[in-house]
């Protein structure tokens, strides 16, 4: 049994639908979790890859306002993955997202799963950022590109599932010391509230720096292009 706990930070300009996307996913995946979690900007969700691997995503929502930009490094410190959300109907949000990427590259040294997400594909007639443009950019930073619509629930679930898979891959490479990996079958009986850190053995592997902070090959985002 393998448990992977990854911290996912969600970055993006104000109003691009960061929280909406997360909430849409949480609502769909965990309908039994109602008010206590919905409404907070921190989410803990468990994804079962198969019988042997379970991934716990700790999703940290961030404030997208320009004035809080200076504080963002506190949020993505020790993050294992970043969801860079932009609004396909706003070039401004796309440019702003590029700014986040540069900052991430400057400040984060550990390998990190990068996902670029274009939100609001339910408004194709107002589209300002073309798919190819976003794809090219994502490729250039070594990220995967996905499109979704939090409003109509298009392609939201896929993003988080792929994210979990990428984290599993990342843990397989074992070049990240912040990503918590536990091999403990007994652990599964534990209560879900406490992070499994406390009792399990942590695999700590020496850090090796990559040129790109992003890890893994960009996954062709065909799944949401239909």
């Amino acid at each position: 049994m393998k448990i992977i706990t990854g911290k996912v930070v969600v970055l993006g300009y104000q109003g691009v639908g960061k929280t909406s996307t997360i909430i849409r996913y949480i609502e769909n995946t965990f309908p039994q979790q109602t008010t206590p979690t919905i409404g907070a900007s921190f989410f803990n969700c468990k994804i079962d890859i198969d019988d042997n691997i379970k991934v716990t995503l700790q999703i940290w929502d961030t404030a997208g306002q320009e004035r809080f930009k200076a504080m963002t490094p506190m949020f993505y410190r020790n993050a294992n993955a970043a969801l860079l959300v932009f609004d396909i109907t706003s070039t401004n949000s796309f440019d702003s997202m590029k700014g986040w990427v540069q900052e991430l590259k400057r400040n984060v040294e550990e390998p990190m799963v990068l996902f670029v997400v274009g939100n609001k594909i339910d408004l194709p007639e107002q589209r300002e950022v073309s798919r190819t443009e976003a794809m090219q950019y994502s490729k250039s930073i070594g990220a995967s590109y996905y499109e979704c619509s939090a409003m109509t629930d298009q392609g939201v679930g896929v993003i988080f599932e792929k994210l979990a898979l990428e984290l599993v891959k990342l843990s397989g490479e074992a070049v990240n010391h912040t990503l918590k990996v536990y091999n403990d079958s007994e652990l599964m009986a534990k209560s879900t509230e406490l992070p499994p850190t406390d009792t399990a053995n942590e695999e700590i592997v020496n850090l090796s720096l990559n040129d790109s902070i992003a890890y893994g090959n960009p996954v062709p985002a065909g799944c949401c292009f239909n």
Binding site: T19, S20, I38, G39, A40, S41, D61, A63, G64, Q65
Partner: peptide
């Protein structure tokens, strides 16, 4: 009303 995002929470 409705869910609270980080955009509103931090201020």
């Amino acid at each position: 009303g409705g869910p609270v995002s980080a955009d509103e929470f931090l201020p």
